[in-house]
Computed example of a mutant assay.
Amino acid sequence: MVSAQLLQDHQHLFKAEQGQVLDLACGKGQNGLYLKQHNIDLLFADIQQVHLANLVTHEDVEQSNVWCADFESETQIDAIKLSKMQLQGVIVFRYLHRPLFDALKKSVKPGGFVIYETFTKQNKQFGRPNRDQFLLKESELKSLFKDWEILFYFEGIKHNPDRAVAQIVCQKP
């Protein structure tokens, strides 16, 4: 089951013939698997090898479609590799590492898309995450993509479960 209504509402932006989509910090991969059901070529990236190993047990996910990446390492090797990719898009849910935004934006080819949802500072009222380094400031996500075409933006409270998030769907010029 896909965890994000945002992805369901905008999955039509990705086309089977347009190249790979990266599910960045994919965790168990439910969002990427949802796109895979719509014949989209997916690359699943996460630091947790156990999650990636479980993904490979799915009949349509091959070892070549998983990437054990540490985007927060001091060497920045995986961030550099990301910046050199030419992806049709990137999806990110519940993950924030500010130094990665430049590489993420470079990895998407012109005309490609980013679908991003993560927590804002307002989330402190609901519990975790509650540390500033993992929470967006007001309008921060929109500002990070100000040079892209913003197709959808939301910032506020969502319910079931209660959480404070910012969501963006944008296209690279």
Results as ranks from 00 to 15, higher is better:
87 L>W: 08
66 V>G: 08
19 G>H: 04
10 H>R: 03
40 I>S: 02
169 V>G: 01
37 Q>D: 10
119 F>Y: 14
134 F>R: 09
60 D>P: 15
103 A>D: 04
49 Q>V: 07
2 V>R: 12
89 G>W: 07
15 K>Q: 15
16 A>H: 09
127 G>T: 01
160 N>H: 12
104 L>H: 07
88 Q>T: 03
171 Q>R: 10
97 H>I: 10
3 S>R: 13
86 Q>A: 12
49 Q>W: 15
32 G>V: 00
162 D>S: 09
92 V>G: 05
169 V>M: 03
34 Y>I: 00
162 D>E: 15
136 L>G: 02
11 Q>N: 08
126 F>N: 07
67 W>F: 02
11 Q>P: 06
36 K>Q: 14
95 Y>I: 00
43 L>D: 08
81 K>S: 11
105 K>A: 02
6 L>T: 07
170 C>M: 05
92 V>T: 09
82 L>K: 01
125 Q>L: 09
59 E>Y: 15
80 I>R: 12
103 A>E: 01
155 E>G: 04
11 Q>V: 09
34 Y>G: 00
142 K>Y: 08
132 D>F: 02
152 F>L: 08
119 F>A: 03
74 E>H: 11
59 E>W: 14
62 E>V: 10
23 D>I: 00
114 V>L: 09
98 R>G: 07
168 I>K: 01
111 G>V: 04
13 L>C: 05
139 S>P: 00
63 Q>G: 06
140 E>T: 07
89 G>P: 00
143 S>H: 13
60 D>M: 13
71 F>P: 06
65 N>Y: 11
43 L>G: 04
9 D>M: 06
44 F>S: 01
144 L>C: 04
49 Q>R: 14
156 G>W: 11
101 F>D: 05
36 K>G: 05
137 K>W: 10
138 E>N: 14
96 L>K: 04
126 F>T: 07
168 I>D: 01
10 H>E: 03
91 I>S: 13
123 N>L: 03
29 G>H: 05
24 L>E: 06
108 V>M: 09
11 Q>Y: 13
23 D>C: 05
149 E>K: 14
110 P>Y: 01
160 N>W: 08
49 Q>K: 15
51 H>R: 08
19 G>A: 01
146 K>S: 14
159 H>G: 11
